[in-house]
Simulated assay, not measured.
Amino acid sequence: MDFVAALDLPHAVAGLLVGTLVGLTGVGGGSLMTPLLVLFFGVSPQTAVGTDLLFAAITKTVGSGIHQQRNTIDWGIVRWLAIGSLPATILTLIALATVGEIGENANHIIVVVLGAMLLVTSVGLVFQRKLLNFGVTHPLPAAESKRAPVATIVLGVVLGVLITITSVGAGAIGATVLVMLYRRTPIARIVGTDIAHAVPLALIAGVGHWFLGEVDFALLLNLLIGSIPGVIAGSLLSSRAPDKLLRLTLAGVLTVSGVRLLLQ
């Protein structure tokens, strides 16, 4: 099968659009890609999540490599997150596949949780800058900082469950909470740490969905064809883009998508 025959233009364009928006705003691709696949392309929720997880693992591996070169990854925080998230991911996959009514109604559960996560993400987009500024200007006392590893493990558990079910959560929740927990750590290092942690999490969750028969590799290829140049273009244009307007627009889109999924 040659390249032209394999190319599915609508999906490649969707990848280009999502990649560009991710590059422009830094919003996690799962918040945009998964609802797009479900609502506009009619992909089943389980397949959309599984495909998007492997999509995220591949794209974030590239981003993680860049952050490693720039020394903007705190591997200690990554370790604490992974202690919570990786076991939670495996247990969530087992529950989705086997546990009574959960396995039978996995698509319904994914749609409901995904819709709720999109609403949370939209609120986060509106207030993210204020939260980040607060975290930077109000460092935690030393006594509270000592409890940060335990809170980080708990955050990892939450992210493991949410990302496995919906593919949404790392950028939307993870980075913001990490800023509040590690207020003396530069923002760039928090972002790099969040991306590095997302790679094994998305990979394990994505492979789990693959074993459950919930990954479309032809769809994955077409999304990557569009998204890689999109991320590059968006990143190059990000310094010139109206950040506040873009974030408010995205918040509105995610709110509409979340409500549609919940009503569905």
Rank of each mutant, 00 (worst) to 15 (best):
V168Y: 08
A175Q: 08
R183Q: 09
T164P: 13
E144K: 08
L178P: 00
V150M: 14
V179P: 01
V150N: 10
A175E: 05
T185L: 05
R147V: 09
P141E: 11
G174L: 07
L155S: 12
R189G: 03
I187D: 01
R183M: 06
A170Y: 11
P149G: 07
V161A: 14
V177C: 06
I190M: 05
I153C: 10
P186W: 07
V161W: 09
R189A: 06
H138P: 07
M180F: 09
K146G: 11
A148T: 13
A151P: 07
T185C: 04
A151L: 04
V179C: 02
V161H: 10
P149W: 02
L162V: 15
V161T: 11
A172G: 13
G169P: 02
V157H: 08
A175L: 00
T185V: 01
A142Q: 14
E144L: 10
L178R: 01
P149C: 04
R147H: 14
S145N: 13
L155V: 13
K146M: 13
V158Y: 05
G156H: 05
G135K: 01
Y182N: 06
I163H: 12
S145C: 11
P149K: 01
R147F: 12
T152C: 00
A172S: 15
G171R: 01
V136D: 00
A188Y: 06
I190W: 04
Y182D: 03
P186E: 13
G171D: 01
G169H: 10
T185Q: 13
V150P: 05
V168L: 12
Y182H: 06
A170T: 12
I190S: 01
V157M: 08
K146R: 15
V158P: 07
A170S: 14
A172M: 10
